[in-house]
C-alpha cells in the first residue's frame, strides 16, 4: 500500500484490433491535480476505464487510494472515496434532480444530503426538474454535485468539461480548485481542452497512440519547453537530444524543444545569427503546442 500516491498504474496493457494501450505506467501523488491529455483516440478513456476496472486488461496493475483493483474487486466499500464523472450524464433522463439525492443516499453510506442540496443551490439546479430538461452544462453539474456529495478523496473526470462553454468550464474548474484545498483530495482530469489543464493541473500526462509520452510537472513543463522559430540551417545547431518535434516550412522552421536553458547556455541565438538569415526566436510552448507537435507526427523523437 502506497500512502503517497492516489493512483498507481503499472505496465497496463490492453489490446484492441487496431489499437493497443501500450505498457502505461504512472503515479499520481495525493493532493494534486493531474491533467491527462491526448488527442481523440489516443487512449485516455481506455486508460480511465482500465483504472476504474470497467474493462478487463491484458496485463498490468492498478492501485487506487492504496487498494489494488484486482484484489479488492469484491470489497467495494473503498469506492465511497472515489467520485467519477464521465463525458455524459449517466442518470436516467426521466429522473428528477431531487430523486438522485434519494437514490444516492441508498448507494453511498457516506452520502451527505445537505452537501448535495447546497451544491444544487450553488449550481442553480432546480430539484423538481427532470434530467432531460437540463442543458448539457447543468447535467454535468448534476454529475459533479453527486461526485462531491459523498466522502470523495479522488475525483476522476473523463472529458467532463468537453462540450461546455468557457463560462461553465471555468465555474467547474473553480469547484475542483476548492476540492483540492484539502491536501488529501486529488483530481485526475482527462481532457483534450488543454487550456483547462493549463489552468488547474499540477502535473501533465501526455498519451499518444496508446503510449505514455511523458508525465511532467506542469510548471516545469511550461518553463523548460519552448518553440524555436528559425531557418532550416539555424535549426541544425539545436542539439538532437532536446528536440521533440519539428515543423519545416518554406521560410521558417519551428522546433519544439524540451530544454530552453540549454540553448541559452550554448549561446544558440548568437551562433544562429552567425549562420545568417532572420534572428531566431525562442517562444514559450503551451500544452497545446506540445500536443500538436507530438500528435501531428512532426515529432521525430519521443522522451
Amino acid at each position: 500500500m502506497d500512502g503517497e500516491n492516489a493512483i498507481i498504474v503499472r505496465n497496463l496493457v490492453k489490446h484492441y484490433e487496431g489499437f493497443t494501450l501500450n505498457n502505461i505506467s504512472f503515479e499520481m501523488p495525493r493532493g494534486s491535480v493531474v491533467g491527462f491529455v491526448g488527442e481523440n483516440g489516443a487512449g485516455k478513456s481506455t486508460t480511465i476505464k482500465a483504472i476504474l476496472g470497467l474493462i478487463p486488461v491484458d496485463s498490468g496493475e492498478v492501485e487506487l487510494l492504496g487498494h489494488r483493483m484486482k484484489q479488492d474487486e469484491y470489497k467495494e466499500a473503498w469506492k465511497e472515496e472515489i467520485g467519477v464523472v464521465f463525458d455524459e450524464c449517466n442518470f436516467p433522463l426521466s429522473l428528477k434532480v431531487k430523486n438522485i439525492g434519494t437514490i444516492m443516499k441508498n448507494i453511498y453510506h457516506t452520502w451527505d444530503q445537505r452537501k448535495f442540496k447546497n451544491y444544487l443551490t450553488r449550481f442553480s439546479l432546480p430539484p423538481e426538474k427532470k434530467i432531460k430538461e437540463l442543458s448539457k452544462g447543468m447535467k454535468m453539474k448534476v454529475s459533479i454535485a453527486v461526485a462531491l456529495s459523498h466522502d470523495s478523496k479522488l475525483l476522476i473526470l473523463d472529458e467532463a468539461t468537453g462540450g461546455l462553454d468557457p463560462v461553465v468550464r471555468n465555474e467547474i474548474l473553480d469547484i475542483f480548485r476548492e476540492f483540492i484545498e484539502d491536501a488529501e483530495h486529488t483530481v485526475f482530469l482527462s481532457s483534450h481542452i488543454t487550456s483547462d489543464i493549463e489552468k488547474i493541473a499540477d502535473y501533465v500526462i501526455l498519451i499518444h497512440n496508446g503510449k505514455l509520452v511523458f508525465k511532467e510537472n506542469k510548471d516545469e513543463l511550461l518553463y523548460h519547453y519552448g518553440i524555436v522559430r528559425c531557418t532550416r540551417e539555424q535549426a541544425q545547431l539545436i542539439p538532437e537530444s532536446i528536440i521533440l518535434g519539428k515543423e519545416e516550412g518554406r521560410f521558417e522552421t519551428s522546433v519544439l524543444i524540451k530544454d530552453k536553458e540549454l540553448l541559452t547556455e550554448r549561446n544558440f541565438v548568437e551562433s544562429a545569427k552567425e549562420k545568417g538569415g532572420v534572428m531566431p526566436v525562442i517562444d514559450k510552448a503551451g500544452i497545446e503546442d506540445i500536443l500538436l507537435y507530438i500528435v501531428k507526427g512532426k515529432g521525430e523523437k519521443q522522451l
Binding site: 470497467l54 467495494e76 467519477v84 464521465f86 455524459e88 450524464c89 449517466n90
Partner: peptide, 20 residues
Amino acid sequence: SIDEAVSFNRYALTTPLGIK
C-alpha cells in the same frame, strides 16, 4: 433500455455497489 441509453451501469460500477 433506460439504463443503456445513458450508460448507467458503467457509472454504477464505479460506485460501492459492486457487480453482484
